Amino acid sequence: MKKNITYLKDCYGCGVCVKACPTKIISLKETSDGFYAPIILEQDKCIDCGLCLRICAFNHDSVAQDSTSTDSYAAWSNNPIVREHCSSGGIGFEIGRWAIDNGYKAVGVRYNPLKNRAEHYIASTVEDFMPSVGSKYIPSYTAEAFDEINLKEKYLVTGTPCQIDSFRRLIRQHKKEDNFILLDFFCHGVPSLLLWDKYTSELKEKIGNISYASWRNKSTGWHDSWAINADSTENKGTPGWKVFYDLTTNEKRHAYHSRMSEGDLFYSFFFGHYCLNMCCHKSCKYKLESSAADIRIGDLWGNKYKNNEAGVSVVLAFTPRGKQVLSDLQNLCTLVSEPLEVSTEGQMKHCAPMPAIRDKVIGQLRSQKSLKEIKSGLIFRYNLRFLPGRIINKIKRTL
């Protein structure tokens, strides 16, 4: 067998191998389970260089860099509008704005309503960077944006830890690390696109064709910010519509609003780990401060900031380059030095646990059953098995 990614199974789907392949025979496709994976359609054109395997984070047991010194901060934007409308403290947006102002292009993630997917793209101006604001809780399609990157130019590249690990290996292979700032985040895992497709299909029946979607909203506070906001071209005006401020357009707009705290079905599946990528359960090596990035960001959950509803970011800087960027942000952001145990409190320390019904849930996501039917049937019966133990544990905690 030739030395290429053909034999890999349940990989991260980061798509960096598409960029790395010198013969351009690798494509990124959606699998039947709803995840991105590389495929090679023309094996006879493979030159057996092995480059795709050398840069593949999934193909290595260790992370691409070992940080010997980590700077740890609580952080937030000094601009109250930015802080209000970003997922946590707005530090990701401020890093992107700083990078663009200093001659970098910014590679972020936006939602494409025409293709109903999250996708990486390249922004050259702060205005172009606006659609990347906020978290996207679905897999991102990277192949096109990564392929457009000119390794001789300067870029800030944002992605999941596994995407960034592979990208670090790519630029190291080409000796171009000095041209890049790499930014990742604390990742919970990525759910099957089958979940998002079914969720939006059902949402379209309520509001019409979706023209906008976001996954976080702090209108009821940062600690209750898991909400789907969706706008449509038809604007049917069904119950659940709210007015909110859109940072990407600097205008107020109407959107359908559904919160996790009120039973939103997308988040029920996502946080229940019912349909995450298999590698999120078995092969994630990027928890806490394990990262190939220059900087890692996320929400600073935990006791110290539990009463702060404006949003607080955790920021970890692993490299001299990352630490210099944060130093240059002093006028844009507030950075409070915190011990690592404070900044990472509340973050996942291990791979996501895999429910025994994970494969059955994905199978039913392919069926005609609604999300409500899947949850009230298969998932309800599964959780019912553990109810007595949960009641006993709750009584013990109370006592």
Rank of each mutant, 00 (worst) to 15 (best):
R216I: 15
S290K: 11
E177D: 13
R97W: 03
W226S: 11
S370Y: 06
C284V: 12
V342G: 07
F271M: 07
L203E: 00
V82R: 00
Q324S: 13
N179E: 13
S327R: 15
K136Q: 05
E144D: 14
E234C: 12
T344D: 05
P388H: 05
K287L: 07
S27I: 10
L170T: 01
E289A: 12
F58M: 04
K9W: 08
R321K: 15
D71M: 10
I181N: 06
P139D: 05
I25W: 04
I39F: 13
I171A: 02
D294L: 04
D299F: 04
Q65K: 10
M348G: 03
Y256G: 03
P339I: 15
N393H: 06
L28I: 10
K152T: 08
A37H: 15
W301R: 08
V18C: 04
A292P: 01
S192F: 12
A74C: 09
P339H: 13
Y12K: 02
H188R: 10
N308K: 08
V342H: 12
S87P: 12
D246K: 06
K29N: 12
G50K: 11
W215K: 01
A74W: 04
K154D: 11
D246M: 06
R296V: 00
P161S: 06
Y12R: 02
D101Q: 14
S313K: 06
Y36W: 14
C11S: 13
I100N: 08
W215T: 08
A356S: 11
D33V: 04
G103H: 10
I362C: 08
V361H: 02
D359I: 05
G134Y: 05
K285S: 04
R97M: 13
D359F: 06
S27M: 07
T249S: 12
T23Q: 09
G89D: 07
D178H: 12
R83V: 04
E127C: 03
F185D: 02
N383L: 09
S337N: 13
M130I: 06
S290F: 04
S219N: 09
R397P: 01
S232R: 04
C52E: 00
C86S: 15
S214D: 11
S211V: 13
L203G: 01
P320D: 11
Y267G: 06
I55F: 07
I55R: 00
G96H: 00
K375R: 10
T344I: 08
L183H: 08
D294N: 14
D165I: 02
D184H: 05
Q330S: 14
L332W: 14
T344S: 09
D66Q: 12
Q347W: 14
A123L: 01
H174F: 15
C86F: 12
Y212A: 02
I297N: 02
Y286M: 07
E202Y: 09
N59H: 10
F266V: 12
L335H: 06
S268G: 08
N116A: 15
L114R: 10
Y137M: 09
N4P: 03
R168G: 03
G96E: 00
Y212M: 09
A213C: 14
K349Y: 13
Y137I: 12
V18A: 02
A255H: 03
E177S: 10
I392E: 03
E119N: 12
Y155D: 05
P161F: 03
Q43Y: 10
N209K: 15
L340P: 02
S88C: 09
K242H: 07
G90Q: 02
R259Q: 07
G13A: 09
T249M: 05
A99G: 09
S211P: 01
A352R: 03
I149R: 00
